[in-house]
């Protein structure tokens, strides 16, 4: 039942973002695993559209912060303003107090603002002037960023990249998809985005994914993968225990979306590039070699052994 709803949601999103079903599926998996999502791609690839659509479809309260180099933490978190009438400070919550926050072009903000956001992501609460305020639940951040070599960016440090459960890349649509997109525009059809499931249903689904069974063999496979990343000389940044946990929870959610109550090695393989790619860093100075790191990791480890 729940799986049906989720698949409907995926289907719905892919009507908006044509030909990107796998990425949408991964994004929903990420949210289902209660993780934050980082979308990295060139401008104009549909990053914002995806996050916007996700919020709508899953019935989440949505706000968007456009990151610029002069954005200050207060702009995002909120501010205490003196109320003359009440003779008290009144707290005006910032855009971060939403269930789904789109942090657009996250790497354009100064490191100070970035770390304020990332603290909120990890703690799911905000401390301002000595008062700690809890953020709404569920709380998701979808960050988008341009590839690091674009002008005017502050690349996120590894420690902050690690906070994102997944990083996905949208990539160019294939010919068919792009043609469909053009035709839609030409015909003036604009697919309407509607809510497919309520956030209560979504939270319930999150609860169900915990029950997905991961056998000993599967856990061993994950451990082997992680250990390989630490023992091999290929990776400068091996996978952290946080990444290990992320791998398992993402794999469980993937299995859940695929209508299974147990995890298969294929599930791990499916989510691993999204979960691990941004955490690994190549040891070699060869820039071209960096793209295939998670692929190399997968190919080095036998799921059966």
């Amino acid at each position: 039942m729940t799986q049906q709803l989720l698949n409907q949601a995926i289907h719905h999103c892919s009507r908006i973002l044509i030909g990107k079903q796998q990425q949408i599926k991964l994004a929903i998996t990420c949210l289902l695993a209660n993780g934050h999502l980082l979308i990295e791609d060139l401008p104009g690839m549909g990053k914002t559209t995806l996050s916007h659509t996700l919020a709508k479809v899953l019935g989440l309260q949505y706000s968007r912060i456009q990151f610029t180099s002069d954005l200050l933490p207060a702009d995002m978190l909120g501010i205490n303003i003196f109320d003359n009438q009440a003779q008290t400070f009144q707290f005006h919550p910032g855009p971060i107090f939403s269930q789904l926050v789109l942090a657009d072009e996250i790497n354009r903000a100064s490191p100070k603002t970035q770390s304020a956001l990332l603290e909120a992501m990890e703690e799911r609460q905000v401390s301002l002037d000595g008062v700690t305020r809890t953020l709404p639940s569920p709380f998701f951040v979808i960050g988008t960023q341009n590839p690091a070599h674009q002008a005017g960016t502050y690349p996120l440090p590894e420690s902050q990249l690690d906070r994102f459960l997944m990083r996905i890349q949208l990539g160019y649509p294939d010919r068919e998809a792009e043609k469909t997109m053009l035709l839609q525009q030409y015909n003036g059809e604009k697919p309407q985005v509607s809510e497919v499931m309520s956030y209560a249903q979504f939270t319930a689904a999150q609860q169900l994914t915990v029950g997905v069974h991961a056998s000993d063999e599967l856990l061993n496979y994950i451990i082997r993968l992680v250990t390989f990343s630490r023992e091999s000389q290929q990776f400068a940044n091996p996978l952290s225990p946080r990444a290990t946990k992320a791998l398992l929870s993402a794999a469980k959610c993937w299995a859940f979306i695929n209508n299974r109550d147990y995890v298969l090695p294929e599930d791990v393989q499916a989510i691993l590039p999204a979960v691990a790619e941004h955490r690994l860093r190549s040891n070699s100075s060869d820039i071209n070699a960096q793209g295939s790191l998670s692929q190399a990791l997968l190919e080095a480890v036998d799921p059966l052994a």
Partner: peptide
Amino acid sequence: SLWHKFIFKS
């Protein structure tokens, strides 16, 4: 599986 190619299409 096939879908990996999507992700690695960039």
